[in-house]
Design a protein around this nucleic acid. Structure first.
Lengths: 213, 213
DNA sequence: TGTTGTGAATCTCTTCACAGCT
DNA sequence: AGCTGTGAAGAGATTCACAACA
């Protein structure tokens, strides 16, 4: 099918990831079919939006029963996942890095965190939730050896630019940046910024507005 | 000025928060004036976008020198901050919660994390980076006493809905949700979802696309 | 009746194009 | 010449409205 092989809109990709999580829960509960308005309610969006997203991935439901939960999960998997999965490294094994490792470990998913990196000698060669921590110096070596294609940057802001550059040189394909520092990477590398400070300031702004201050 | 008292677009608020961070760095370096294209470059966006944002907050630069860094910082502060600042509580003092506390502590900012909450008795009444940790049971009491208006949810996903409900009852004004669970809150409460799993899956999708898999 | 699928309209955000200033 | 400020066009995302179907 032509449609599903084209690149999907950003927002649709986000929602598909979220739909899948809830669909898996539904499936576990024994629910076999689901209507667009049920999915919509779980995510606080409109049923039309859900149908539009599902339309974009080229799936069709049945009129009386809605969508087949299992089929939809499988199709989203085909869209979002690669067959062999992608391997992820976390650069910066502080609280945030460890929290991510803990979070992803245990989830059976096509994404697996396979290495951590830190400059702190106390952390090097320790294992956190099953993930070996290497020294920064080994970044390139381990990325190549472990076939890591995605890097999550959770180092202090000052080091972010340096880490990003090294990741790019090491041939990383995608970066998720948790530092508030906007990064400069080659256009071949997909970069997603994830700025917690801005998120909080945004909440503050709208709280302020709502309070009429 | 009428314009600056109206609610700004979501995206503009995000960018203003980011501009400010970099402007503060510029100011610290002794830079007194800045052009739109310089700000743009720092954030990998277009100069027009920057000028549009600045226009929306009702500020004007000078033609030859660009914008006055100090004035712009102050104005963004007037837009984003409240005079007395807002007080924030973190619910769930695990790795992620502690990472946020550590991050915000030390930054002089109008937002301050003033309390943590956890169910784990080992954590209760401990102090993390200057922030006292209370038991969940005291949520309502402390929120009222400490005049907390924003809650950051960093508990395990299963507890998120329960925590959110209690926060709303306690009269919270804004919630930043780090769990992958979409929350249901009253429309008076500003809710910002911040889904790390989805972010990573999005990176994976675009990496996959770029690789042509 | 209640659901899906979708063209068209709407809303939101970004970029173009250029007037105006120094 | 090089910058800002902005109306207007364009692109992207969402919602409306309704045809088609069981």
């Amino acid at each position: 099918m032509v449609i599903s092989s084209k690149t999907l809109p950003d927002k649709t990709v986000e929602r598909l990831s979220q739909y899948r999580r809830n669909l898996l829960i539904c499936l576990a509960k024994g629910k076999q079919h689901i209507f667009s308005h049920e999915i919509a309610q779980l995510h606080h969006i409109t049923p039309v939006q859900v149908r539009r997203d599902i339309m974009l991935i080229g799936y069709s439901g049945t009129l009386r029963k809605g969508y087949d939960v299992k089929e939809l999960i499988d199709l989203i998997g085909k869209i979002l996942d690669t067959d062999e999965g992608l391997r992820v490294g976390v650069i910066g094994v502080g609280n945030l890095g460890r929290s991510l490792i803990g979070y992803f470990n245990g989830k059976r998913s096509k994404l697996s965190i396979v290495a951590g990196f830190d400059a702190n000698p106390d952390k090097v060669d320790k294992v956190y939730a099953g993930v070996h921590c290497y020294h920064f110096d080994k970044l390139s070596e381990i990325i190549a050896r472990e076939n890591i294609s995605i890097g999550i940057i959770t180092v202090p802001a000052e080091q972010a630019a340096d880490v990003a550059e090294k990741l790019v040189i090491a041939g990383i394909k995608g970066i998720l940046n948790f530092t508030p520092k906007p990064l400069n990477v080659s256009p071949h590398v997909y970069l997603q910024e994830y700025d917690m400070v801005t998120s909080l300031e945004k909440v503050a702004y709208f709280v302020k507005k709502q309070a009429g201050i």
